[in-house]
Amino acid sequence: MTDVVQLWTYLASSPLFGLTATVTTYVLAHALHERLGRAPWSNPVMLSVIVLGTLLLATGTPYPVYFAGAQFVHVLLGPAVVALGWPLWQRRAELRRRALPLAAGALVGGGVASGVAVGAGWALGLPTPILLSLAPKSVTAPVAVGIAERLSGVPALAAAFTLLTGIVGASSAKYLLDGMGVRDWAVRGFALGTASHGIGAARALSVHPDAGAYAAVGLGLQVLFASFLIPMVAALFR
């Protein structure tokens, strides 16, 4: 029995644990997602986070110990974001022609997402540091964290809100867009990337290449607009 405990202690503290747990859980979550006909509500990021989060809490494993292994997956996020340029480049002529509708959609959509979050949060009596951390929630996590910092919000909370926003969008946008009668893959993907950044883009990519490419455009435009406009608008309220 003590051997088993010792083995677990050893495995759980080596980087191998976080890496193995992440990849294995994701593979299982993805298989379940496929099995359920890729239903949006069975989002593999959400399932993996729930399973791994529960595992860490149940075994009392601190997050940094997990991340020591999981970082080997995490570092690939950088080149993956650069790689989003590939589907954009393939559609460069079409995107240039649609620059105006896309820029307008990104401005209005991003503004509405941020404004409704802060406005509704304020109406519900959430404390100011939380409101400031909610403002950049539609922007990809590393940028959202930077914006929250400049607004004197709580950067770590901003990261959590961003993640939850991504999961909400990826797991429910289909029903909303179906209800609105939006059928163009480009518009569907663009809306998802604008409001739900990378996690939305990952969902869009898994569904249709056009949706994925436009989601990447939406994500990119949010980064450009939000990092300038959110701090400017926040300054008006000081």
Binding site: S48, V49, V73, W86, I167
Partner: peptide, 19 residues
């Protein structure tokens, strides 16, 4: 990289448990 973009968000996502 893009065919399994979702996987890459999992490590940061698990960080939610800290908050």
């Amino acid at each position: 990289l893009l065919s399994h973009l979702s996987l890459l968000f999992v490590p940061v996502g698990v960080g939610v448990i800290v908050h």
